[in-house]
Amino acid sequence: MREKIVPISTPAKGAVGKTGFWRTFKPIIDREKCIKCLLCWLYCPEGAILRTDDDITIDYDYCKGCGICANECPRKAIEIVLER
């Protein structure tokens, strides 16, 4: 099949794949401690923390495990564990 090539690219999630595979450390939210302040959502360089209504979840498909969320959490509600 002939591939049509135009000199533009179109937006897509996972342009370089599921970057969750890069992860060495994994952030885990402690639901008891979380006060839903959304700071982790604000600081996440990836947009890998999903904000649903006023709750948050981590999109492990894309989280690269930088640990900013854990470092910045004012309640220490995010634990960093070794990815297995």
């Binding site: 370089v16 947009g47 640990g67």
Partner: peptide
């Protein structure tokens, strides 16, 4: 406020930035 910010993302996840990239 943080809550006032849109949930719409214009930098999509799964990009090639290094972890912790400013």
């Amino acid at each position: 406020t943080i809550k006032s910010l849109s949930r719409e993302e214009y930098l999509l996840p799964g990009n090639a930035s290094c972890p912790g990239c400013p």
